[in-house]
């Protein structure tokens, strides 16, 4: 019997190898695309780095300058709270 005869077991092995290869490629593409989306959507990218930074401080309420319009700060603050 010729040695190069393909046994059924080789077909199963190939299916496993090709399948795993495709899954890994898909995973890499997925993580890359996710990175692009996350960066473009402007999520907070900076983490804690042992000392406070201005960009990490909570935004100040601009209310103190104009006591006449007390309702305004609450309205402008709303979009930030919802995220």
């Amino acid at each position: 019997m010729a040695l190069h005869t393909e046994h059924e077991i080789h077909r199963r092995r190939r299916s496993r190898n090709v399948g795993l290869g495709l899954v890994l490629i898909a995973f890499v593409v997925l993580v890359f695309a996710l990175t692009i989306v996350k960066v473009q959507s402007g999520d907070m990218m900076e983490g804690f780095d042992h000392q406070p930074r201005v960009s990490e401080l909570p935004r100040e309420e601009p209310a103190s300058q104009e006591p006449a319009t007390e309702a305004a700060p609450a309205v402008t603050a709303a979009p930030e709270d919802s995220q």
């Binding site: 077991i9 299916s15 496993r16 399948g19």
Partner: peptide, 17 residues
């Protein structure tokens, strides 16, 4: 002979799915 492999559990990709 060629049947040496028989019986050894060898899965294909679909089995993991």
């Amino acid at each position: 002979d060629i049947h040496t492999y028989e019986g050894a559990p060898e899965a294909e990709f679909g089995d993991y799915v």
